[in-house]
Simulated scan of single mutants.
Amino acid sequence: MNAIHLLFGPVGPALKFIFSIGYIPNENDFLELTDEQYAAYLKQYGEVTSKMYMFAPNDLHHALNEDYNEISCIDEYELQGFKEAAALIQKYCDKSGRIFQNTKEILQYMTSALPDVFSKGTPYEKYHHLSISITNSKN
C-alpha cells in the first residue's frame, strides 16, 4: 500500500474511525441496509450506486452513541477501506513480534507505526496525556 492510497483512499478514514472508537471492526460488524433503509437512504440522498452498509458491532459496547438516531452508512468502497485498515494493522502487529493483550495495546502501538493524522483527536493521539513543562536551563 502506498502513502497516497493510505492518506487519500478509503483506508485513512477507516483508520481514523478505528482510533476514535478504540475497536478494530471486522466484516461481520457491518450489515447491509434493509429494503426499508435503502428506501430511506434513496429518498434522502438520491441514487444508490452500490451496496450500502451500516456499522452494527455484535458487542454493543463498541456501538456509536446510543442517543444518535441516524445510521451512518458506508458503501462497498469504504467497507473495503475497513478491510484494508484491519489487514494493515495486523501486518504491523505481526512484524513487530510483540504479543498484544488487547485492542488498546494494539492501537497504542499503531500510533508509533502510523502518521499522527490517524490518531489525532482520539484517545490514542500521540502524547495526548503529556503536558508541556518549561524549565530554566540557565543555572
Score class of each variant (00 low, 15 high):
41 Y>L: 10
38 Y>G: 00
100 F>E: 09
44 Q>C: 04
47 E>Y: 00
64 L>M: 14
76 E>M: 11
84 E>H: 10
58 N>I: 10
110 M>P: 03
32 E>N: 06
27 E>D: 12
70 E>Q: 15
110 M>G: 01
114 L>N: 04
46 G>P: 01
76 E>S: 15
82 F>R: 05
86 A>T: 09
91 K>E: 15
21 I>R: 15
34 T>H: 02
84 E>M: 10
125 E>I: 01
111 T>R: 13
99 I>R: 04
117 V>K: 09
113 A>S: 15
98 R>F: 12
137 S>Y: 07
27 E>N: 07
43 K>N: 11
118 F>L: 07
110 M>V: 05
76 E>V: 14
18 I>M: 04
8 F>I: 03
6 L>R: 02
126 K>R: 15
127 Y>T: 05
64 L>V: 10
53 Y>E: 04
131 S>C: 07
51 K>F: 03
69 N>P: 01
63 A>D: 14
114 L>W: 09
27 E>Q: 12
127 Y>E: 11
88 L>I: 03
130 L>P: 00
118 F>A: 09
134 I>G: 05
8 F>H: 12
22 G>C: 06
29 D>M: 08
68 Y>W: 14
8 F>C: 07
99 I>P: 00
18 I>T: 04
65 N>L: 11
21 I>A: 02
1 M>R: 08
57 P>C: 03
35 D>S: 13
53 Y>M: 02
71 I>P: 00
104 K>N: 11
117 V>R: 10
31 L>Q: 14
57 P>I: 04
11 V>Y: 02
35 D>V: 11
13 P>L: 06
80 Q>T: 14
29 D>L: 07
86 A>R: 12
102 N>V: 04
1 M>P: 04
81 G>C: 02
22 G>T: 05
25 P>V: 08
41 Y>F: 15
34 T>F: 00
35 D>A: 14
90 Q>F: 03
11 V>A: 11
56 A>R: 11
34 T>Y: 08
117 V>C: 13
59 D>P: 00
94 D>P: 01
17 F>P: 03
130 L>A: 10
97 G>K: 01
76 E>G: 05
42 L>Q: 14
94 D>A: 14
81 G>M: 06
78 E>D: 13
97 G>C: 09
48 V>D: 01
26 N>F: 05
18 I>V: 12
1 M>V: 10
55 F>V: 02
19 F>L: 08
52 M>A: 01
25 P>N: 07
56 A>G: 00
103 T>I: 04
138 K>V: 10
130 L>R: 09
35 D>E: 15
38 Y>R: 14
50 S>I: 00
95 K>R: 09
13 P>D: 07
40 A>R: 14
122 T>E: 08
69 N>A: 13
53 Y>H: 02
134 I>S: 06
64 L>Q: 13
121 G>A: 06
64 L>I: 13
126 K>P: 00
113 A>C: 15
24 I>H: 05
30 F>E: 08
37 Q>S: 07
92 Y>E: 13
134 I>F: 12
127 Y>I: 04
